[in-house]
């Protein structure tokens, strides 16, 4: 396990003290509550994304993946709160609602090839694997790549390949991909990733600071290879009040 900074240790300690009662709770029940909450939020968001509620398979995947096994031991009591959590190395495990939204936007079918840039805790990876796709995941922080591999193996997602590398160049040997999911935004969308997308493929990228995804960028490659992007807000909001 990586070395904790004193401040992180204090945070964990505080969480432990305050949540010790909840720790004994039933994870399955908490997970079901989480899925219910995401289902409700999914219906609300249709205004901004065009998604009319989440795909039942995505919700089932969230309901099946034991998120608590992907968060640091001391944060497990908060594992099924619909919020991002710190996982060390300045990284976070995304808010489950955002995981559902990003996964949904990829419109995956079983058997497809998916590239994930930024394995992090491995939670998003596991959700993708639940949908029956072949996931190739790249993580640049070695310690996270190792722990994600361990988490995925423990939870039975052993078919996923996690590679410790710089994700900018994608994974040319396994390309092309039906879908690419980038879990942290860079200053631009890496052109090699666009190149490794199949015609008809979709790529989704969250934009914003850690703990706060402000928008999602969806890159779509048409059958003729033409590329376009869509920008989506994760909330139901329009800036202009229209006259009725």
């Amino acid at each position: 396990m990586s070395r904790l900074r004193p401040s992180e240790f204090m945070a964990f300690l505080a969480v432990l003290i305050l949540n010790v009662g909840a720790a004994a709770g039933d994870y399955a029940a908490a997970r079901k509550e989480l899925v219910d909450e995401i289902t409700r939020d999914g219906r609300r968001v249709s205004l901004s994304t065009g998604i009319r509620g989440f795909d039942a398979r995505v919700l089932a995947a969230i309901g099946n993946v034991p998120r608590h096994q992907f968060v640091p031991m001391l944060l497990r009591p908060a594992a099924y709160a619909n919020r991002p959590l710190p996982i060390g190395h300045g990284q976070t495990i995304s808010q489950p609602y955002i995981v559902a939204l990003m996964t949904d936007l990829l419109e995956l079918q079983a058997g497809q090839q998916v590239l994930e840039i930024g394995t992090g805790s491995g939670y998003q990876t596991a959700v993708l694997a639940e949908l029956g796709v072949r996931v190739h995941s790249i993580e640049i922080i070695e310690a996270l790549a190792n722990s994600a591999r361990a988490h995925l193996a423990e939870t039975g997602y052993s078919g996923v390949v996690v590679r410790w590398a710089d994700g900018y160049h994608g994974w040319p040997e396994r390309a092309p991909f039906d879908a690419i999911i980038v879990t942290a935004a860079a200053s631009h969308i890496p052109p090699p990733l666009v190149a490794q997308l199949k015609p008809g493929g979709r790529m989704v990228i969250p934009v914003g600071a850690r703990f706060a995804v402000q928008q999602l960028v969806l890159v779509q490659k048409a059958a003729d290879g033409g590329v376009s992007t869509r920008q989506l807000l994760p909330v139901a909001f329009v800036p202009l009040r229209r006259r009725r």
Partner: peptide
Amino acid sequence: PAAPLRHAPGLSLNAT
């Protein structure tokens, strides 16, 4: 050096 920074805001998706 290992993971170059590549700071290029507003870079075109068609950039090669």
